[in-house]
Design a protein around this nucleic acid. Structure first.
Lengths: 347, 347
DNA sequence: TAATTGAGGCCCGTCTTTAGT
DNA sequence: CACTAAAGACGGGCCTCAATT
């Protein structure tokens, strides 16, 4: 066997060629070492292993992806990444991906269909092992998504586009109903403030949960009027609308004594608006949030909220991807998570 | 010119071969189209462009990376991603990368040298265009980093490992001194609570800034005693230590009337501890934070803090990478950013 | 001769087929 | 005829160099 010295040896990275030469075997054998070790003599195995260690050899992922037509990367497309929910989901996804030997490539859509489409096409060209996607609220990419689902695995996180897709999310209807019932049970008459339309369908589901619980109690829902302008500045959004709402006075006539907010960030803005209006949040007006941010327990007053298991949701998304990587398991993977109510002083 | 139909045409992705066939040119010409268009007839150009559009062709990034020995990916290694500062930095990096046609691959080190080393080796094998790294506090990987800096571009974000490396960060010493002087100027005698040792050197710099300002005023620094256990639960960390500190009483004897916290999250925990102890934060004890989180303006009391320009820091990191991608510009890129004090009611 | 385009090797692995023992 | 290992054809581009007009 004649293995010419690799021209790159001096300058470039170590290649399989180098390892083969050092171990005194062919590239094919080294390749076997990294894939199916069965049928390799212990002696050969050991020599290759040593050569790899000595040369600090790592297979070139691009070459592997090229020949395999699939990479070990997972594409994650989120509306934003600097939002507590998505940041935590990403953390969980990254951790799980690492444990599966996969790498995460992240893109933000900013809730823009065009950005989402571009990100999806990038992921496709990258031949990712799968995509974890929080779909934008618009239905503009529906057709594209249906097409892409044919050729690559897509898991929807905190969103979905049709009944048969894979999705992983909190049971928002149930959780918001639970919060609302909690308020009702304590003798309150709660109003509801939903998030700006930068997501789908979570906000709608939470609204439905609130409405459900109100209906159970024989009460008509009372919604804080709010703009439909997309915005990620939840605190400002809540502050402004709650202040206007309080000033309007309709809440008083309706006998409202509590405010259920679609997220903790909204609740924080709402509490601030209360104080500005001269009311003591948690006392003059009970307030609950949803999500249980790390800071929520330290607010004044500490925020009653619902803790959704974001990490579990992220991990499940990765597991869904993995489940259908090797095998041809195409069973739709749909998972609803639940969390728990965290009673604190704000309600 | 004879171009056989691509066997993959039916099943696999569209390749350059397909485009060439459709446009009636050779692969080489299509390749030129994507790289150096100079020297291509307008006619040829148009035919290729049309073929690309019709076939929805996108060059396979893995094939390109393989032959070029460099990918268009940027590796980002952060301690965590679900922390406001890093989440926002990542957002800015991702946005800037997108505008440069690059993709972001993210890894978390959890402040663990081993994880950091593994992430770096992954980035190296991926032949990333560059790495944006928030180095762990430990110096364990110093040698590895020095070695890797030889073969790939590394920009340190909110950290650095030696004087000659590229780094981008807030001028923490200056900003914390500014906050401290602000308190002093209002007649306060401030103590200081630093973050747990999960970063370097920001917390140390902030402490130094505090000490500087105190020295200017002829005062001895007064530090809230705190554990050196690494932790990302800043609120709990602050709550516990501030409560103990208040209970200890030394602060009273020292005439302390204010508390400067290394981050807003610490300030939130500190305010909570104050209330638990029976003091009104912002009234009985002035409190300032650092970072200006989106929620900080809506807290009670609204938090006086320092707004660091995280987005600018992230963008600068990407620009540093880009600056030395094509050219062989190896001028060290060191940038200190500054922000502004945001006075609110907590102090 | 200058301006364009084509041919074919190569990057670094994988995988099927063929050759040794 | 078992086992192992080597040979060599790809995969999808880029790039140098030669060919064509």
């Amino acid at each position: 066997m004649k293995i010419a010295p690799n021209a790159n040896a001096a300058r470039g990275p170590v290649t399989m060629h180098d390892v083969a030469a050092r171990a005194g075997v062919s590239r094919a054998t080294v390749s076997k070492y990294f894939n199916d070790r069965e049928g390799l003599k212990a002696d050969t195995l050991a020599r290759i292993e040593q050569a790899c260690r000595e040369l600090e050899y790592v297979p070139d992922p691009h070459a592997v992806s090229l020949v395999r037509g699939r990479s070990r990367m997972v594409g994650v497309i989120l509306p934003v990444v600097n939002e507590p929910f998505f940041a935590e989901a990403l953390r969980a996804i990254e951790a799980k991906a690492k444990s599966l030997g996969m790498d995460v490539i992240i893109q933000c859509s900013y809730n823009d269909p065009a950005e989402e489409a571009a990100a999806l096409m990038t992921m496709r060209s990258m031949k990712v092992a799968g995509v974890i996607l929080t779909a934008v609220a618009s239905t503009e990419n529906r057709a594209l998504l249906l097409r892409l689902e044919q050729e690559m695995r897509i898991v929807y996180l905190d969103s979905y586009v049709h009944e048969d897709c894979n999705y992983v999310m909190n049971d928002n209807r149930q959780s918001m109903a639970m919060l609302t019932r909690y308020l009702l049970g304590r003798g309150h008459v709660p109003a509801f403030l939903g998030a700006p339309p930068v997501a789908h369908p979570s906000p709608q589901e939470r609204l439905a949960g609130y409405t459900d619980a109100m209906a159970e109690a024989g009460l008509a829902p009372h919604l804080v009027p709010a703009s439909t302008q997309p915005s990620w500045d939840f605190e400002a959004f809540a502050f402004q609308h709650v202040l206007d709402w309080l000033a309007g006075g309709a809440w008083k006539r309706a006998g409202i004594t509590a405010l259920a907010c679609g997220t903790d960030r909204l609740a924080i803005g709402a509490m601030s608006a209360c104080r500005r209006f001269g009311l003591a949040p948690g006392k003059d007006l009970a307030i609950v949030g949803h999500d249980d941010l790390p800071i929520s327990a330290y607010l004044y007053p500490p925020l009653t909220t619902f803790r959704q298991d974001v990490a579990a949701i992220g991990v499940a998304a990765m597991e869904c991807l993995q489940a259908q990587l090797d095998g041809t398991d195409v069973t739709p993977f749909r998972k609803r998570f639940t969390g728990g109510l965290v009673p604190r002083e704000s309600a």
